[in-house]
């Protein structure tokens, strides 16, 4: 039992942290510009591919820093010459723009790297078991991912709460007109926030591409779940994104680790659905098979009962 809980927590935390790396940038962009950036996960994918390709020449450690920077600059270009032009026409064209962009990036990735998954592996320096718990090894790379994610959260938090730049960003988030009136170049702030957000997603990709799989479908796989994190956590809230990510990660992993179904609850109350009724499928379904839809269930419930999310400040 203790073993199950420990490993579910560890694995859930890791998955949650990966989700956080992806969604922290999105929550900034979403909260600030009101843009549902459908292409956000595509920048995550670009991060993984750039890091893999660069890693072949420069090694992993250089790529770890360089790939997010390059993707971030790419994000800046997309904002400056794409989104900003579309922005004049309202939110719907923006949405369609990012939607199209996601497909364009996926096709480009297929064109340059092909359809086959990349052999993007753990760097040798981290390819060893760090510690052993209950006879199961815990790989060093997983711990490394955790460390990177925590460093990212702390850095982001300090940047937003303790620096002047963070002050302006936060102000632009809620009162863009006022910030503009005070003489700040709000469009430029938007551009750098977008660049920064895509860079963070790319950093998630650099480590996530190793931990999961680097292939052209990875963006569409992660796309929906990242929105769940942003909505559950609350728009524009970094702490909210962190809590939501870990919540989803742990929830999903626990559902996978324990044998549980609605029938177990029913037995406590002395109630059981007859096996031949139409509800029996749902009633006796294993939690392991429900696990993949749990985050979306959470999304639906959150939107009904607390539309601003866990830590969000605004209703919309």
């Amino acid at each position: 039992m203790l073993e199950t809980i420990t490993f579910s927590l560890l694995n859930g935390l890791l998955y949650g942290m990966l989700l956080f790396m992806l969604s922290s940038g999105l929550t900034l962009i979403f909260g600030m510009m009101g843009v549902l950036n459908f292409a956000h996960a595509s920048f995550y994918m670009l991060g993984a591919y750039f890091a893999y390709t660069m890693g072949l020449y420069t090694g992993f450690w250089v790529a770890l820093f360089l790939a997010p920077v390059i993707v971030g600059l790419l994000g800046a270009v997309v904002e400056r010459y794409g989104l900003r032009q579309v922005h004049q026409h309202g939110h719907v064209p923006e949405l369609l723009f990012t939607f199209g962009l996601a497909y364009v990036i996926e096709e480009l990735v297929r064109l340059f790297w092909g359809n086959v998954p990349m052999n993007y592996r753990v760097p040798e320096a981290l390819d060893f078991p760090l510690f052993s718990l209950f006879g199961t090894n815990y790989p060093a790379f997983r711990v490394f991912v955790l460390v990177v994610a925590i460093a990212m959260f702390v850095g982001l938090y300090l940047l937003l709460k303790r620096t002047r730049a963070g002050l302006i960003i936060q102000a632009s988030l809620s009162r863009p007109d006022m910030v503009s009136a005070l003489g700040h170049n709000v469009p430029q702030v938007f551009m750098w926030v977008f660049a920064f957000g895509t860079g963070l997603a790319a950093l998630g990709g650099v480590v996530g591409g190793i931990q999961l799989v680097t292939e052209p479908g990875m963006a569409f796989m992660m796309g929906p779940i990242v929105f769940v994190v942003v909505v559950v956590g609350g728009l524009g809230s970094i702490q909210g994104a962190l809590i939501a990510s870990i919540l989803i990660g742990v929830l999903q992993t626990f559902a996978l680790s324990v044998d549980w179904s609605l029938a177990n609850v029913g037995i406590l109350f002395g109630y059981a659905v007859p096996p031949d009724s139409i509800f029996a499928t749902l009633w006796y379904m294993d939690s392991t098979r429900i696990a993949p839809i749990l985050p979306y269930l959470l999304l639906v419930l959150m939107l009904i009962f607390r539309p601003r999310g866990l830590m969000g400040k605004r209703e919309s």
């Binding site: 890791l14 998955y15 199961t136 992993t253 392991t288």
Partner: peptide, 19 residues
């Protein structure tokens, strides 16, 4: 049973096998 082609991290399954 696990969903086909959807699982990216088999660690939870592996820890179940172990236990």
């Amino acid at each position: 049973l696990h969903p086909i082609g959807q699982v990216r991290d088999f660690a939870p399954y592996v820890s179940r096998i172990r236990q």
